[in-house]
Design a protein around this nucleic acid. Structure first.
Length: 289
DNA sequence: CTTTTCTCCTGTATGC
DNA sequence: TGCATACAGGAGAAAA
């Protein structure tokens, strides 16, 4: 499940393989891949032909290619991988994947770019760029912990006023972006905090430490090429990441906690699974339902 | 406005 | 063997 580290691995792959190249032709199949592009897939295809890919950028789990037309105007092609989206750089003669939703052919006739997505939660859309270079349609997404403009003290202040569970806040992309279920559980395990504790029940230093852990664990995962549980997350060359070997909480139900040996538990939270150590991360006394 | 729930999707695993 | 059900979960719409 691509979260910040996995999306960054993909962004780097795009920077290496498609930045600097000119799109000759792009095709989109089905309505879902372009559902956030309101004029529809045909319009999206029409607008891409002839553009130079000038940059590959990212904020949180969102990725965008900066497209430059021959007259010099720029737009962002936003791509979100959702649950199972893949951007693959492949030889044009490679057989089509079962869930191929978009393909980009380049003027240099080199390898093409494909968007493959089994669960179709991902998608692509064109958006104008704001003055600070972020696409308008994702202006509501907060800075992520790895970008220079990330103001951790401000995030801590906002978190402190939230009347909700701390894991919910970690997953709120308008508060801090890039963190999904895996790295939320890993950060909470490192901070020895149960995700259902209220934000207001934690001190500001504790919230700040939690964000430190979130940043640290995502950086470490990035160094391992991200986390892959199955073939759904791969880089642009189809290779998996190895951080699953370093997970301490997520998916570790029944395995001994690496700090205290107590078996890791799985609980349901927000209609998803949460993993934690019963001893290091005790549930709050007044649990929220 | 803030917070929570629902919905989209398909492959894999599990149960009867 | 076959069918039903649970699960994985990001994010935006809708509801509370």
């Amino acid at each position: 499940m691509p979260e910040l580290p996995e999306v960054e691995v993909v962004r780097r792959g795009l920077a290496d393989h498609v930045v600097g190249r000119t799109i000759e032709h792009a095709e989109f199949r089905g309505a879902r891949v372009a559902r956030r592009h309101l004029p529809g897939p045909a319009d999206l295809s029409d607008r891409l032909a002839g553009n130079l890919i000038a940059e590959a950028r990212r904020r949180g789990k969102y990725l965008w290619l900066v497209l430059r037309t021959p007259d010099g105007s720029e737009q962002g092609l936003i791509t979100h991988l959702g649950m199972s989206g893949q951007l693959l750089v492949e030889d044009p003669s490679a057989p089509e994947e079962k869930h191929l939703h978009a393909r980009f052919c380049f003027a240099d006739a080199g390898p093409e770019l494909r968007f493959v997505d089994q669960r179709t939660f991902g998608g692509m859309a064109l958006s104008d760029l704001t003055e600070c270079g972020v696409p308008e349609t994702i202006a509501h997404i907060a800075p992520d912990p790895l970008e220079p403009g990330f103001d951790q003290a401000a995030v801590v202040r906002r978190m402190k006023t939230r009347d909700t569970a701390v894991k919910r806040a970690l997953l709120d992309q308008t508060l801090v972006s890039g963190i999904g279920n895996i790295y939320a559980d890993e950060a909470l395990w490192r901070a020895q905090v149960h995700g259902e504790r209220l934000c207001s029940a934690l001190t500001r230093p504790a919230l700040s430490r939690l964000l430190d852990h979130a940043r640290d664990v995502m950086l470490e995962a990035l160094g391992q090429g991200g986390t892959s549980f199955d073939a759904l997350y791969v880089n642009v060359n189809g290779a998996s990441g190895y951080f699953d070997r370093s997970l301490n909480a997520y998916g570790q139900e029944g395995r001994p906690c690496q700090r205290c040996g107590t078996p890791i538990r799985r609980e349901s939270f927000m209609n998803r699974s949460s993993y934690s150590c019963p001893r290091c991360q005790p549930r709050p006394r007044r649990p929220r339902t």
